[in-house]
Design a protein around this nucleic acid. Sequence first.
DNA 1: GGAACAATTCGCTGGACGCCGAAATATGCT
DNA 2: AGCATATTTCGGCGTCCAGCGAATTGTTCC
Lengths: 229, 229
Amino acid sequence: MSGQPDFSSVLSLIAEPSRVAMLVELMEGTMLPAGELARRAGITAQTASGHLSLLAQAGLVKVEAQGRHRYYRLASEPAANALEALLVLAPPTKVRSLRESDALRRLRKARTCYDHVAGELGVALEEALRTRGALVLDGRNYVLTGTGEELLSELGVNVPALRSTRRAFARTCLDWSERRYHVAGALGAAVATQFTELGWLQRIPGGRALCVTQTGREGLEGAFGLRLD
Amino acid sequence: MSGQPDFSSVLSLIAEPSRVAMLVELMEGTMLPAGELARRAGITAQTASGHLSLLAQAGLVKVEAQGRHRYYRLASEPAANALEALLVLAPPTKVRSLRESDALRRLRKARTCYDHVAGELGVALEEALRTRGALVLDGRNYVLTGTGEELLSELGVNVPALRSTRRAFARTCLDWSERRYHVAGALGAAVATQFTELGWLQRIPGGRALCVTQTGREGLEGAFGLRLD
DNA sequence: GGAACAATTCGCTGGACGCCGAAATATGCT
DNA sequence: AGCATATTTCGGCGTCCAGCGAATTGTTCC
């Protein structure tokens, strides 16, 4: 009846509890895969997929395909602004449980992404390798230079063996906590394995979290000049 | 699992078509009786009554009884601000004016956004200043040139005083009705105040609607070459 | 090639809610 | 008092849609 512009369609899209939960997760500015968003919103992957499809169609989020993952992020600044304005109206913020917060912080620090190193450590490692001329970005892949092969070989990584496998040698992988790329593929996996072998990293069973040992701190600083907090 | 602040309850309340229509009507600042709101939203009195009851319960509107009428108005400044921010998300203006409400048309024309001028007037003002070389866009801010400072000083705006305040000098602000930028920040507020002081604009107390006086029309054309419909 | 995993599409169901008709309450007018 | 108007409450009806199970597509790993 009322010939008003359609305010409510976008608003009701945001209003739905699961959807707004996912949008809030994205407010941080990070990109998150669909499955992770589903988990955080407490819904199944199918439901989340439907929601994300609608949000993308409305131009609220944008998606970037990365292998079998699809990373979502907030599309526009007005969207973030409106969400912030809502904070004023929303009832007082409840505090997240400390346990969750700790887990999240640990994951941010260092974790495995499938079989390679991600998180701050993974990103820092990638950056150190590139600034040292050991690694060069080439589209979705990395090229390991002679310098890089020498450096990693000294640490016990058998680079020639990796090149002969059918698995992609060194792929870029997008990090959800850092929103930057790190090294995946055969090389990434081998580095993670070798660092664990050297006692630099310890995997926390049953999760993706990684722990950097004291030996690891020293080793990483010696080999790559990395200083970890 | 939902450790989130409860965005969705407030937002879904706003998102409903009939309710947002009534809220937009109230954005003008006037108080309206329940029956009038029902008529403008194109619903029956019973339905509107239910909606208004919910909105009042959520603290978005307040009610004042006068005789057998009950006058509703927006409850708070944060509520108006949140509406302003949310409307930015609405899809680009469709076929304008199928049967657009008078209130909405007035808000489109000229209104205050927080404390500065928005709507067609705000956008036209920004455009006039830029084409005259008085204002230059610089990311999220504007830079006022010497020409601009001279121009505004002639109208009685104390520009140097504005620069010494801690508030951002001149920010861009996105307009929901025009989908273009206008001038906010200390400068935007000072301009709105000064224009009101000069008798060019009249503000409806407690509301966002602005009225351009005949003096204002002449003054705006003389100073900025603005021709208003 | 086959298994595993991420993500999407489809079909269905149960619950939520906007809407109005009818009736009730409250105020104002004559 | 009697009638008209303004608003609210109640009960039901119809619709919309979030949610999940099942099946499909696409990618990675062995």
